[in-house]
């Protein structure tokens, strides 16, 4: 309930924030604090310094730059969930993240940077082929989402880097996210969830990305399913065949909510449902 003592700073600029991160032995970046503060209260994480980026201006916008959508570091889940420019997969994932209070304060970038194995939005940004923009002492670094999620609660961000922006390419098509939550339905963390993005041209699936959450040790691309659906007509049979390959190449991990066998099965169901919905959107 009581975090260990730490120093706190709320810098006014990203430059200052990055500098402060470099000056401490163990510093953590905080935006909404929804993931960080509980870990600190349980003393599972005890940084020397918390760098609160919550007061830095200009990070709270969802911007349409023409070729991509930029989601700033302080865009809350509720903003992502209610945006009419954010692709369906991410919007849906944000709307199923946490609860009302968590969505009021937690940020999309924070949830992505936290890289929880069962969180919703990491799968969505992965399926949407987003680029993570990190700012560190040596400037700005762009990290493709495919390389961003390294392991459970571990991203490619260096300790002195801040995820300042998520860029989602505007490549058309349709997207969707579906999951089974721990309490059933869509509530709570995912027992298994899948995000899908597809483009369709002349009745054929021309491109696709599918990502899973809750299944393995990190949010991961379901590459076999992606390959299987591209080039098909996106029919029910094609989707079913592709979803059968949902966990190929992925190490499925058992937890309190499901055995390996169950999660493997559930991943297929969620991939099928997400692909089906994404195709419907792509065709409309």
């Amino acid at each position: 309930m009581y975090p260990r003592s730490f120093d706190y700073i709320a810098p006014a600029s990203l430059e200052d924030a990055v500098r402060e991160l470099g000056n401490a032995e163990f510093a953590k970046v905080m935006a909404g604090g929804m993931s960080l503060i509980p870990l600190m209260k349980l003393r599972l994480l005890s940084p020397d310094l918390v760098v609160d980026i919550g007061r830095i201006g200009g990070l709270g916008e969802i911007e349409d730059t023409g070729d991509h959508l930029s989601i700033g570091a302080l865009v809350r889940h509720r903003d992502t969930a209610s945006s009419d420019v954010v692709p369906t997969a991410l919007r849906q994932a944000a709307s199923w993240t946490g609860d009302v209070q968590v969505r009021n304060r937690g940020t999309t970038c924070g949830a992505v940077a936290h890289a929880d194995v069962a969180a919703d939005q990491p799968a969505a940004v992965l399926a949407l082929g987003a680029t993570m923009v990190a700012r560190g002492p040596s400037g700005i670094r762009e990290i493709p989402s495919d390389e961003f999620f390294v392991d459970a609660l571990t991203s490619a961000l260096a300790p002195d880097e801040i995820l300042t922006e998520i860029r989602i390419p505007k490549r058309g098509g349709g997207s969707a996210y579906d999951k089974l939550g721990r309490r059933g339905g869509h509530t709570d963390y995912a027992v298994a969830g899948a995000a899908a993005w597809v483009t369709v041209s002349d009745g054929a699936v021309t491109d696709a990305r599918v990502a899973l959450t809750g299944v393995g040790t990190k949010p991961e691309l379901a590459r076999a399913a992606m390959e299987a659906i591209v080039g098909t007509d996106g029919s029910e049979g094609a989707v079913r065949a592709a979803s059968e390959r949902a966990t190929e190449g992925i190490t499925v991990i058992e937890d309190l909510y499901g055995s390996v066998e169950y999660k493997t099965h559930l991943a297929k169901v969620m991939v099928r449902r997400a692909l089906t919905q994404a195709l419907t959107e792509a065709r409309s």
């Binding site: 604090g33 503060i37 609860d99 209070q101 968590v102 009021n104 304060r105």
Partner: peptide, 22 residues
């Protein structure tokens, strides 16, 4: 763990779990 919501208050008009805010 920011779950029960007994600590909910409004911060700048929005519901917030005050146990998960410094």
């Amino acid at each position: 763990t920011s779950y029960c919501g007994a600590c909910t208050v409004l911060v700048d008009g929005r519901t917030t779990k005050s146990c998960t805010m410094l």
